[in-house]
Amino acid sequence: MTMLEIRDLAVSFATEGGTVRAVNGISYALKEGEVLGVVGESGSGKSVHALAVMQLLSPPAARVETGEIRFRGTDLLRLDDRAMRAVRGRQIGMIFQDPISSLNPVYTVGFQLCEVLRLHLGLSRRNATTCAAELLSLVGIPDARQRLASYPHELSGGMRQRVMIALAIACNPSLVIADEPTTALDVTIQAQIVALIKRLQRDMNLTVIWISHDLGVIAGLAQTVNVMYAGHIVERGPVRSIYKDPRHPYTVGLLGSLPRLDETVGGRLRSIPGRPPDMTQLPPGCPFAARCPQASERCGAGMPPVEDVGDGHSVRCWHWRDVVAARAA
């Protein structure tokens, strides 16, 4: 069953420096129980697209130009504030990169969890407290009962992220959006959080959107991957197909930028030259053209359409066949 369907979503921001075209017409569908990884350069629109789903973009600067965001069939963009508040937290949970700024520093962890449980689920104070303690132990916090009385600053980074996860899953949501939830953490703590999310995803049959810079984390976690560049999904497909058989020059470059385990001493990284375009002055054609080894005249003239390359894998590149041929050679 389709849980979430995004159609032709475009979001822009009015800023002093001009209009930032953060998301430029993206479409995809997410099945129930699916884990989607979203990767891409900083500024490529990953977070903005997530904030649009949650309706957490602040008008008037932020504007949804076009599109639909259907969650279980309902277009979230058409809901009023009250209806959206009921969806947010209750049916869709969100986990942010920086738990310290998303947790309220002046309230205890227990109070914040109980608030959510009472507001959305109408639990009594006593039941909410019991449930809050259960949630904390579910996310692997030892001495959960005592921990309810802790303030966020009294917890380590990893513990705070566990609390964020407890908050996000408190009301048994069907969709969880995690925006770089482990970027600020050490790898050993990241491994704890990834293991936790995997367990919860399986046990609760969660649908997950996981945004990350880390192609390693996504490789171990996602079933499907969206690769974003300059506000477009430039490539999308099953995780194995994206990593083993990338068709878009940007995806190829991204994977080539990583050190390989089997490389020999003195091997060079195949970095992508240049840097991403200014989002207030996007070029008329393919936004990757200035950095692309395959670029031709055609690329500067028009944005390539989404092309299905089979097995649920799609790409937006005029010359993806050349990319495949270049790899075969």
Partner: peptide, 26 residues
């Protein structure tokens, strides 16, 4: 050993086959 096993590798097949030693605590 724990640190190395905690690093995710950008390869879905290797990731699926690997065992991660998850260190407890901080």
């Amino acid at each position: 050993q724990a640190l190395i096993s905690a690093i995710p590798v950008p390869d879905p097949d290797l990731e699926a086959a690997r065992e991660h030693i998850v260190l407890e605590g901080d």
